[in-house]
Amino acid sequence: MSPVILAKNVSLSYGTNRVVSSASFTINEQDFVCIVGANGSGKSTLIKAILGLIKPAAGTISFGDGIKREAIGFLPQDVKTDLNFPATVSEIVLSGTLGRLGLKVFYRREDRVKAKEALQQLGILKLNNASFSNLSGGQKQKVLLARALAATSKVLILDEPSNNLDYKSRKEFYATLKKLNKSGLTIIMITHDLDTEDLIGNKIISIKESKVKCLATSDYLEAYR
């Protein structure tokens, strides 16, 4: 498997606190990586650095051939929008393609096709013209995942995606992620390390007291349980 993301001696700070010290890891094509650690351990800071939203205090994060930072699909922890935000599902999912649009002003036919494919992939094409504010929590999460899928065909980064989901929706959501991973997508997901049901990937990146370890899931479970 070819490398998709390579971190070399990366150190990250949040304010004056050093949350990640000299981390090195490689994420390969079709890996499903779960990032675990206590609250405030630096999980979100690490994915922000991968997404280019913050600069590492030291070290480098580079990408494999054909991977552009703007074309990484991202599902934030929560979208802090107005409850009555007037937006249709298609408006939201199409906005995922903006990273590839460059200087172009209007969506192209291929962007609309990509957005529709993302909805179809998640089985929510019928919601295309629905109002986002009228959807259930599980449906909203799927729409935001579709937006992330519209942004990428290679790497998906998710920040605690199961936070606002009930048990059934979470199971369903994880099953969808596994299916997407099997279809070739590399997935990086922040999750709780308290619940082994959430550790659904093949690799774990654990952050504890600013030290980062990258292990196979089975090794992690053996070492820490």
Binding site: L51, G52, L53, R69, E70, I72, F74, P76, V79, K80, T81, F85, A87, I92, S95, G96, L98, G99, R147, A151
Partner: peptide
């Protein structure tokens, strides 16, 4: 709609 996502896609 979502500033964090907008930043992430450049």
């Amino acid at each position: 709609f979502d500033e964090d996502f907008a930043k992430a896609i450049g």
